[in-house]
Computed example of a mutant assay.
Amino acid sequence: MLNISPVIVWTVALSQLLTFGLTVWNLVMSGSRANAKQISDHADLLADHGGRIASLEQSLVALPAKEDLHKLTLALSDFRGELREIRASQNAAAEMVRRQEIVISRVEQYLLENGKK
């Protein structure tokens, strides 16, 4: 008769070794899979940041330079001076109109008083 108990023992032992080997393999590779997922997420995030940085660089290119801002400041200073001149001229004109109104009211008063005589 054939004794199969050593075959069963070897089969069980081989099965246990294979199970142990697969468990170790899964433990080792699970970290690798998690890292691969994390690296993939970081690559996507980095690509997104690259696009955002490119758009910021384009925005910075469109901003005025230091010299442009200096020219604008000088132009505003000149404009402010011209506005002061206009304001002074308007005040002078308003004073002339006020004086003319006084003269006109005096002439009107004189004419009204002399017209009654």
Rank of each mutant, 00 (worst) to 15 (best):
G51W: 00
V61R: 03
G51Q: 09
A65G: 15
A54V: 00
L69W: 02
H49E: 09
A65F: 02
P64Y: 10
A65H: 09
A47G: 06
D41H: 13
L56K: 06
Q58A: 14
D41I: 12
K66G: 04
L69Y: 07
E67V: 01
A75P: 02
D44A: 15
L76K: 07
K66L: 05
L69N: 05
H42I: 15
L56H: 06
S55A: 10
G50R: 05
L45D: 15
A75H: 05
T73C: 11
Q58T: 11
H42E: 15
R52D: 04
D41M: 08
L46S: 11
L76N: 11
G51C: 02
L76I: 11
P64G: 08
L74G: 10
S55D: 12
L76M: 10
D41F: 02
T73L: 09
L72K: 00
V61N: 01
L76W: 07
P64D: 07
E57I: 00
K71T: 12
D48P: 02
L63S: 03
D68R: 11
H70E: 15
K71A: 14
K66D: 14
A75C: 06
S59I: 02
P64M: 14
G51V: 02
L45W: 12
S55Q: 13
V61G: 00
D44H: 13
D41K: 13
R52P: 00
L46F: 08
L72G: 09
D44Q: 12
G51A: 04
A65L: 09
L74F: 09
L69A: 11
G50V: 06
L46A: 12
